[in-house]
């Protein structure tokens, strides 16, 4: 074991101190020490994106970042999205467009999509597929994830949005 150090960063807006060994990976600090269990561990080899968090304006796989590298950083995780009980448009979009099933990839997926929409508020399907390719989903086949992100993008642009799965569509048909 090597000497522990105190690392300070802003986590979902709150100043946070945590004591870690230099080798501690951010995902473990978040999950095991700070009760931030939204980001998940899916592969540990930076392939799956389930551990994605936003650090200083970048989407980052937190399984491949040392906590000590986050000194002075601003971190956003899925826990920081809903404000005052109101869901973020991405959270709403994922539900309305059925962009999740088992839910394991979802926090990373939404966190990544957030940064994508900051950089490109009107992405095409092609853009979304390209810029979301760092997040694996085993359940949905991505088609509804693309729709969910388009839904959120439209809502964030101030447009009127509706689900493509109306409640009574098949019963009324």
């Amino acid at each position: 074991m090597s000497k522990k150090t105190i690392v300070n960063f802003k986590l979902n807006g709150a100043s946070t101190d945590v004591m870690v060994e230099p080798r501690e990976l951010l995902i473990h600090t978040l999950r095991d020490k700070l009760s931030i269990t939204g980001p998940h561990i899916g592969c540990e080899t930076s392939h799956c994106g389930a551990c994605t968090v936003d650090i200083d304006g970048a989407s980052v796989k937190s399984c491949t970042v040392l906590t000590v590298q986050c000194e002075g950083s601003e971190l956003l995780t899925i826990e920081g999205f809903a404000k005052g009980g109101v869901l973020h448009p991405l959270q709403e979009g994922f539900t309305q467009e059925h962009g999740l099933q088992c839910g394991f990839c979802t926090p990373g997926m939404i966190t990544r999509a957030y940064r994508l929409l900051q950089e490109n508020p009107s992405p095409t399907e092609e853009d979304i597929r390209f810029w979301m390719a760092g997040n694996l989903c085993r359940c949905t086949g991505y088609q509804n994830i693309v729709k969910a992100i388009q839904y959120a993008a439209a809502k964030m642009r101030g447009e009127t949005v509706t689900t493509s799965h109306p409640l009574m569509a098949e019963l009324s048909a």
């Binding site: 392939h47 994106g49 970048a58 980052v60 796989k61 491949t64 970042v65 390209f130 979301m132 390719a133």
Partner: peptide, 11 residues
């Protein structure tokens, strides 16, 4: 654009 994936490209 052909290297790794979006997250990895931020780092």
């Amino acid at each position: 654009r052909q290297i790794a994936d979006p997250q990895v490209r931020y780092k």
